[in-house]
């Protein structure tokens, strides 16, 4: 398995703990040793302020709230990110239609492909 995420700091915004646990395992399989997690917009914004994040994945719907404010903060810092969503059209109604989307449920391979897509644009 590739160690695509070795040495990278990844922000995962996901409000369902069981889904998050699986994502953490998937990221660990991809060599990631530094995963920052948040379950709400406020917590995610605080963590973006406190850490240097290389790449991020965002659940588009956090307990009924849109994750757009998090996307705004990441875009401002030029941190590449994609959305993970179970929604038909995603929730990218304004501003972020061009961002990659990972449909839930997803495999580790699909997750890896999304990160590869984002990271191929950097370094």
């Amino acid at each position: 398995m590739s160690k695509l995420l070795a040495g990278r700091c990844v922000l995962v915004v996901e409000d369902e703990m069981l889904i998050l646990m699986m994502i953490e395992d998937m990221l660990s399989d991809l060599g990631c040793e530094s995963v920052i997690t948040a379950s709400s917009v406020d917590l995610a914004l605080a963590k973006i302020d406190a850490h240097t994040i290389d790449v991020a994945m965002l659940d588009s719907n956090l307990g009924g709230n849109s994750s757009d404010p998090i996307a705004d903060a990441l875009a401002e810092r030029h941190v590449p990110f994609f959305f993970a969503t179970g929604q038909k059209n995603g929730a990218m109604e304004r501003g972020y239609q061009d961002r990659p989307v990972l449909k839930k449920p997803f495999s580790r391979e699909a997750l890896e492909a999304r990160f590869r897509q984002l990271l191929s644009g950097t370094e």
Partner: peptide, 23 residues
């Protein structure tokens, strides 16, 4: 839409449960 969102999240949760059990 809301139902679809919940179903997809539930399927992901089930996937996680399977994933943990197998790990």
């Amino acid at each position: 839409d809301e139902l679809n969102h919940r179903v997809k999240n539930t399927l992901s949760t089930v996937q996680s449960i399977a994933w943990q059990a197998l790990r």
